[in-house]
Each structure stands twice: as C-alpha cells, then as structure tokens.
Amino acid sequence: MNGNGAGYGDPGEPGEPGDGTAIAAYGIGKKYRRGWALRDCSFRLPAGRICGLVGPNGAGKTTLLGIAGNLLEPTTGTLRVFGEAPESEGANRRTAFLAQEKPLFRRFTVEETLRLGRELNPGWDQRAAEDIVRAGNVPMAARIGTLSGGQRTRVAFALAFGKRPDLLILDEPMSDLDPLVRHEMMGTLLAEATEHGTTVLMSTHMLSELENVCDYLVVIAEGGLRLAGEVDDLLESHALLTGAHVDGQLPANLAHHTVVETRTSGRQFTALVRPGPDGLDGGAWQAETPNLEELLLGYLRSPQAAPLLTPSARIDDVQAVAA
C-alpha cells in the first residue's frame, strides 16, 4: 500500500495526499468504427484525489475510464496506472472498476458475490465488504436478482471496496439511485476513500455529485480535454465578470484576458475569463470567482475555448519520455 491512508484520518497532517501519480495519460485516443471517441488526451491524476470526470453524454468519459480500467485499449498514446500499463498484473490488482450498469451475476447470492471477490483477488478484505453490505441491511442469503437497485449498487460497491484498490474507477456510480441511497453511498464512498487513501476517478454528469465531493476535476467534451486540475485552483484561476455593454460592444480591455464564454442579457454582459497577467483592475465590470457550476457550464457551452490544466495535472515532456 502507498501509505497515504493515514493522511486523511489524522487531521494533523497537511491536507496534501501522497504525491504519487495514480493515472498518467500520454496523448491517448480511441477510434471506433463511427469515429474518434477520444482524442489526444494528456493529463495526470495525482494519487489520493477524488476526481470527477465531467462531460456531456457521448463525450468519451466511459471510453477514458475503460482504458484506465483495462477494458479497452487506446488506439493512440499510452496510459499508466501507478506507473504501470493497465493490463499489467500490478495495475490490475490495484485498480477496481465499477461499470455504469453495475453488472453482477443475478443468480448468485450476496454471499456468493462476495466470495467471487475473495476467490479472484489476493488482497481481498472480507470484513470491509461485509460491513458495506450489512450497513444497508442487505441479507447475505438473498439472490442478486431479487435486490432493489440501491441494494445491488451497494453490493457492487462492496465488491469494489473489498478488493482494497488504490485506484477506484466508477462510471456514473449514482445515476440510478434515489436521493437517500445516493447520499448514503456517496458517504460510504468518501469514508472508505478517506480511510484508505484511495484515489477515486468517477464520471458523472450531475453537478450535485461533484460539489463538495471532488477535489480534482477532469472535464472532457467532444473527445477532447477541456479542464484538469484541483477544483479550488481551477475556480480561482477564473473570474466571472458582469457589466454593461454598449450596443453589443463588450469592453475592449476584455481582450487582455482569455475569454471562455460571454453572454449578454438586456444591457448586461457576463463573461467567464481567465485573467491575464495584469489582473482584472481597470475594467468596467464587477469580478467574482465563479462557482463550480458556472465554471463547468461555461466550458461545456464553449468547446472552442482553450483547455486549461493546472500544474499538477500537466504531463511534462520529461515524464512522457520516461514513460
């Protein structure tokens, strides 16, 4: 284990989790018969983060997760999980993957499903898996086919956590759950990740799942990377400007900044910008730090805006060569 598990449980430690790299993607792309699902994605996910992977439907989220989870091979580029190829035994052992449809054997009992995990995983933690199942009062002798959607998700979670992964990949984990179960499962997910220092990468298109849950963000749209980095850093490197425009003419000095998106409504304009080196002073506008929703919507609505990666998310050439 990578030893950063204690970091969370003990608030005395600095908040920075282990500085290892959980996922490094070097220009990965995936082409299907109908075209490219993912193109030239390069980013780094530091270990110990809880990372949201956001994008519209069909943006390539599932493809990216599948490559990291060793279910797909990239057409171009390479991806490393803790420095190893996804198909390597080492990476395979350290990664757990929860597919969107949460597949389980319908005729197996809950107990047999956990036995599956025990039989196939050398590092299996039966107690952790059982605790998660028990917390939802799911009977161990019940067949999977007779369980409710929430209970089935819980069993799938138990199977994923019982593997004691260092990297947990979840594809739309909460999409078919009612709000109560969703809150509960998110709590379980975060608590487990906190206790064991697990890196979590989960895709979603529900902003409410991200707020307060993720501390890292990867945004893709139309197969390309839009944003990657710490949520706080990403928010702070943007400003939401509001002011009055003159006959549709936006203030000229707006051009000193990288404009992600502008919208006008009546006499008012709103612009999501990345402030230039001179700062935001001197403009006829009011500047605020955007919230997560404003930032994401801005980028998702403006696919032509230049992508932004914070330093911790960048893959530099030295690493690329070393890989």
Partner: peptide
Amino acid sequence: ETGTAKLVNTQSSS
C-alpha cells in the same frame, strides 16, 4: 451481453 464479463475482468485475475 449482461456485462458480467466486465465484472470478472476487473478482478485481479487475467
């Protein structure tokens, strides 16, 4: 068809 291939192949065995 049911996705259990994904389930089995994301465990530790090859």
